[in-house]
């Protein structure tokens, strides 16, 4: 049901409540390591919020504002490929249902 009643993941996230910490990303991908280990492509697949996407040159782009803060990326990333922490206090997603 990609293209289902509720739209793409990005469209669905548009209905969520976020406080974006402008200019202060809580996610950092180490591109060379991510490419070498295959972690880059893995992050694109596992993240339910589609925070990670692969650009044409193989660079992993990070849309940190969409992060749902689950920590899946941190759990599967090869050592040295990713720095991921929670956003600052009161920043990031605020679930309204949970």
């Amino acid at each position: 049901m990609t293209g289902n009643d509720w739209g793409s993941v990005t469209e669905r996230l548009g209905g969520n409540s976020y406080e974006v910490d402008e200019g202060n990303s809580h996610i950092l991908v180490h591109q060379e390591e991510a490419r070498r280990t295959g972690t880059g492509k893995l992050l694109v697949r596992v993240c339910p919020a589609h925070v990670y996407s692969e650009e044409e040159d193989g660079t992993i782009a990070v849309e940190y504002a969409a992060c749902l803060e689950c920590g899946t990326c941190r759990a599967v990333a090869a050592p040295g490929t990713l720095e991921w922490h929670y956003p600052e206090g009161s920043m990031g997603v605020s679930f309204r249902e949970g």
């Binding site: 009643d5 509720w6 993941v9 669905r12 996230l13 209905g15 969520n16 339910p48 919020a49 749902l68 689950c70 920590g71 899946t72 759990a75 997603v93 679930f95 309204r96 249902e97 949970g98």
Partner: peptide, 13 residues
Amino acid sequence: LTGGELLEYGCHL
């Protein structure tokens, strides 16, 4: 789910 309104899409470990 037919006709339902998506209130929230979320995830958690």
